[in-house]
Design a protein around this nucleic acid. Structure first.
Ligand SMILES: [Mg+2]
Ligand SMILES: [Mg+2]
Lengths: 320, 320
DNA sequence: GCGCAGAGGTGCAGA
DNA sequence: TCTGCACTTCTGCGC
């Protein structure tokens, strides 16, 4: 570990040159510069940042972060990749530059007016984050236990590709109707409702599936029926033009939904199935063994009937 | 500035207690801990992270960041807010905890097994980032110069609220037809095309505007015409059922578009107007005075005719 | 490399 | 506080 406090410009330059050269040594080091600096960025956008005290951080994978004393996001940065760090002296001040060519030509130039502290610290870390309560957890759970969405439902596919992107779950209900389910880990907004509609609209209209252009004057068949004045009433049949069959249903499975989202669903005869994470975690939670998510004991319970509001739980998942 | 290298647990504890107490002193300090640690998180989701060397960073605004030697995003974190940091010793090891109640109950617990370095550094910074080439720059530019989108176009509103969210620009073309424009700073994907469709579908169908439910059996009128086999042909009139009038056009103004997005637009008779940032910046770029974006000299040039591909440029904008 | 979609997204503005 | 939305989003995954 190397530390240099309040260095003169020459010493700072030497330190940084050495630190950059050794950035990837011995499983990698974290290099930090506390300095009064200005920052210029050019790339996907462009920015300037006048003089102030910030923390500059360099990682062995090419990551550059510039943090101020506020907020959780860096004020300037460069994502990891084939980035080239360089340091040079110009007119008596040190210029630290990060440059990349891919996937966009980008450059961050940092002018160090006054270096307060320099660090180079080895970072050994073999562990990976284990994250639970992800959308993937819900996918696995619902796929294994479609009855949690609705009795009689069967899923044939996860991540089924419509021609408008992949829908989370793809199945058939007990009436034999096609069912598309889009799952969200948190409250659904209008964009999530719209995403579901994008998939369902495609599946309801074979016309759109054609490679070429849609014929002029043809009427769009996507239509909604009443879906309950208060949003929790019986959804009833989703009105659909008789020409397209069988009926295609769309379900947004998530905890809660905004008013606009509910309206969007209603407009197109789509449905919402509510998820309760607390219930889910309370019932599951147990299995701590490594490997795949344990979707063990799972009866038909945890399923409140009557108003398309249900309950579930999750396993776990490794990040990355 | 305080530095403590390879401290004993007792010294580390004392340092951290003092550092946390003085976190907001004198315009704020940045507190860092380099340590071999494990991390537990509970909140919107839940995670565990086994032992490894990481950087822990605390900001005066409540921000907590835990960085590994890889990636630009922290492996664990807590966003700024009314967070409470605390440190304590348990079974001979130090536990650093961050807790918040709003907007969600969340806690990050960090167990420090071996502290390598402790820092508390003052951070004075009065400057704010100036960012250019934002979507907002395009909004202002197009609003002031609708001819860059299309000759004869007039905008009445920016950020006009449809009942499905706010569309960027709202105007009338020279035929007297309603035009909705959604602007994107980078290439448009299927979700951006879908977003535009969400707005246009609403404006084309007064039926959806009704507070109550949509009637069963009504046909959706949104329809596409041929929009060119190669996507660059004459868009022609967007076929629309005669019942809804006047015609409502939708334009996605962005640099480039994916195939699926183009198909989505074509399916619904929506259009794409291409943006060329290089052209824009080349022509503008000049004004460096502070304050509002200068949308000065702007003729009808920079507008390649013939295939709904045009050109523009931007001003600048302050972040926050 | 492109494109889609999730994220403990974060940050912001408007109601 | 909630909602919609941009973001130099980042990041993972599939094609
Ligand atoms: Mg999905
Ligand atoms: Mg917009």
């Amino acid at each position: 570990m190397h530390i240099l406090r309040e260095p003169e410009p020459e010493a700072a330059l030497a330190f940084l040159q050495s630190a950059l050269a050794g950035l990837k040594e011995h499983r990698g080091r974290l290099v930090q510069v506390f300095a009064n600096c200005t920052v210029d960025y050019q790339g996907r956008a462009a920015s300037t940042l006048d003089q102030g005290e910030r923390l500059i951080m360099l990682k062995p994978d090419g990551t550059l972060l510039v943090h101020t004393g506020e907020k959780s996001k860096p004020v300037n940065w460069m994502p990891p990749g084939e980035n080239r760090f360089s340091v040079a002296e110009k007119d008596g001040r040190i210029e630290l530059t990060a440059l990349r060519r891919k996937p966009h030509e980008e450059v961050v130039r940092i002018f160090l007016h006054d270096v307060r502290l320099l660090l180079s610290v080895p970072m050994r870390d073999a562990q990976e984050l284990v994250l639970r309560r992800t959308e993937g957890d819900l996918h696995a759970l619902f796929y294994a236990h479609p009855e949690l969405i609705e009795p009689g439902l069967v899923f044939h596919r996860g991540e089924k590709d419509t021609r408008r992107g992949p829908v989370d779950l793809w199945g058939t209900d007990k009436e034999g109707h096609r069912v598309l389910v889009e799952v969200k880990r948190s409250k659904g907004g209008i964009s999530e409702a719209t995403q579901l509609w994008r998939y369902v609209e495609m599946e309801r209209n074979g016309r759109y599936a054609v490679e070429g252009d849609v014929m002029e004057g043809t009427a769009n068949v996507a239509v909604a029926t009443r879906s309950g004045k208060n949003g929790s009433g019986k959804t009833g049949a989703n009105g659909q033009n008789g020409k397209t069959s069988p009926k295609v249903r769309g379900i947004l499975a998530c905890p809660g939904i905004s008013d606009k989202a509910q309206k969007m669903l209603s407009d197109h005869g789509l449905e919402h199935v509510a998820i309760d994470w607390d219930d889910l975690l309370q019932h599951l939670d147990a299995p701590r063994a490594a490997g795949q998510a344990t979707l063990g004991r799972f009866g038909g319970d945890g399923l409140k009937d009557g108003d398309k509001e249900r309950t579930v739980r999750t396993g776990r998942r490794r990040k990355g």
